[in-house]
Simulated scan of single mutants.
Amino acid sequence: MIRATRILRREHLSGGEIVDRVVLDSGARHRRRVGMRGEGGMRFLLDLPEAVVLDDGDALVLEDGRLIWVEAAPECLLEIRAASEHALRRLIWHIGNRHIPAEIGADAVWIADDHVLADMIRGLGGTAEPVERPFRPEGGAYSGGQAHSHAHGHGQAHDHGGAHGDGHGPHHHPNADG
């Protein structure tokens, strides 16, 4: 099986033969070594020296130089907003106090869709609307910019850092429950 042994970050991608793509959620984008299958059917082994976060637009470099495009999959999230900057900061504090991976934007925060957390946010005066979009949780204080999370049960997660947000707007999911 052919191996992908390095990553070409999107800002350095300037050519090369893209032969397939993988569409991965935020948890699956934190990898070191795993067998993968592209959307076009190409099977390969991701075999990196250490675990890294793959971001939307990166490419995996196969041993023969061909590339596999990485695409962030849309996920069911809650888009959290508040009436003021101070109120949003307060909500961010409550989310962080629960060790929930979060993507923090200029005027909104996104977390995994969870009705218990949505009720908490609404009870604190914020809005929590279901959306479907790629999730790029923030890196933790000790993550060095790399991240992933492990779910520990309903409404709890353990963050090991995260990829950064890029300001792409949310896309509302018409069939999501709140």
Rank of each mutant, 00 (worst) to 15 (best):
E85V: 09
H86E: 14
A87P: 03
R89I: 00
R89A: 08
R89G: 12
R89Q: 13
R89D: 07
R90K: 11
L91E: 03
I92D: 05
I92L: 08
H94N: 06
H94W: 07
G96I: 00
N97H: 07
H99D: 12
I100D: 01
P101N: 07
A102G: 00
E103Q: 10
I104M: 03
I104L: 04
I104S: 00
V109C: 08
V109Y: 05
V109F: 05
I111S: 01
A112K: 05
A112Q: 07
D113L: 10
D114S: 06
D114L: 02
D114C: 10
V116P: 00
L117D: 03
L117T: 12
A118R: 04
A118K: 02
D119L: 01
I121W: 01
I121L: 02
R122K: 04
R122W: 00
G125A: 05
G125N: 12
T127I: 02
A128D: 09
E129W: 03
P130M: 06
V131G: 09
E132V: 03
P134S: 12
P134D: 14
F135C: 03
R136D: 02
E138L: 08
G140Y: 13
G140A: 14
Y142F: 08
Q146M: 11
A147Y: 13
H148S: 09
H150L: 15
H150C: 05
G153P: 12
G153V: 08
G153Y: 09
H154E: 10
G155Y: 09
H158Y: 15
D159Y: 10
D159L: 14
G161T: 07
G162C: 10
G165Y: 11
D166G: 12
G167F: 12
H168I: 06
H168R: 15
H168G: 10
H168L: 11
